[in-house]
Design a protein around this nucleic acid. Sequence first.
DNA 1: AATTATGTTGGACATATGTCTAAATATGTA
DNA 2: TACATATTTAGACATATGTCCAACATAATT
Lengths: 193, 193
Amino acid sequence: MKYDLSKKTNRFAERTLAAFSETLFTLLEQKPFEEVTVNELCEKCNYPRATFYNYFQDIFDLLEYCWQSISKELHIAEYKELETSERTQVLFERLYSYFEKEENKVNQIMSHNDIDGLLAQSLKRYMLLQIREIMMDCPHGIKNDIPFEMIATHYSNTLQLILEWCFFKKETISKKEARKCINYLLGTLEKED
Amino acid sequence: MKYDLSKKTNRFAERTLAAFSETLFTLLEQKPFEEVTVNELCEKCNYPRATFYNYFQDIFDLLEYCWQSISKELHIAEYKELETSERTQVLFERLYSYFEKEENKVNQIMSHNDIDGLLAQSLKRYMLLQIREIMMDCPHGIKNDIPFEMIATHYSNTLQLILEWCFFKKETISKKEARKCINYLLGTLEKED
DNA sequence: AATTATGTTGGACATATGTCTAAATATGTA
DNA sequence: TACATATTTAGACATATGTCCAACATAATT
């Protein structure tokens, strides 16, 4: 990202960042991410291309910023006080709630953007890194000779897999079934905690 | 892919497909995938751009074709006779051998292409689908109320995670450690087979 | 109110993408 | 070898990308 988010907020930046991210998501409700061009984006929200490139390297950069904004709504800081053993469960519940709340928008977007496309790929990667970070954030080091970063990634992969089945499959599974799946897939690890 | 691989082979196509894929990999030893352009690729292997677009939609399409060619070297058909319970192990051993054999080339490429870049993303996605297909290819249906496709994906994710630690980390793990990790992460599932 | 610093804008630029032709050329087969 | 067929090729085209700069507008400071 070209724009430095850590510096003092100002009206300019807030308006512009909001405009670009909102417009991107409006467009994603209408067509696949692959077909969205910077030109079109700028026309839609009435900003010149130069402004776009003042803030973002490219359209992937904007997407990354969008995920960041959304993830702020999930109050990540609150996870930090939870026990490792609870984290998977709580993380699942919170993410589930979020997707459930936004189900209509999500469905609309996913009707143009399939699960293997660039949009989903980008979201998955972002979620993976975020969840892993949350899982990693305890002083574990190595457990049964297994590096904890590996375990954290494994948790993260699994959580993501389950959420995919809850929301992005043709035949989705219920919340109850999902909990059972988590238990089954992470069974061993949970017990030894 | 624009070119129909299923039709009778001919010299034209063989030469051209080989030239483009080899040249792409030569370039990847020198720079990140993100910086490779179709123009450059065509100049390097002395084909006009029009020829490239006779065969491929775009450069991602060529990459997909490369993975396909490589995976032929792994003799996927031979897995089909194995028991499900053996598959994870055997798949791991074979993939490990392949990466070990190509270690120099792999390292050279990875020195320009980091694990989160488009190249690695594309390979991961391809491997995921392939491994899942192999794991799925037995008449399991549902197991403990868990859809088998989910379990297959879980296996696939895990195998990939371990291989990443064997070859693409700064501090890699040994083959022996890797086997232990697989056991630990997939413990429950294996036992109930 | 005048001045300075900071960010925005329009337009031009070089380069890349992907499509489309008609003409040239290589291919497999009879 | 000669031929019909399939493929390649050069070049033009419309459009997209990302960078740059000078002119401009806005916000903060004096």
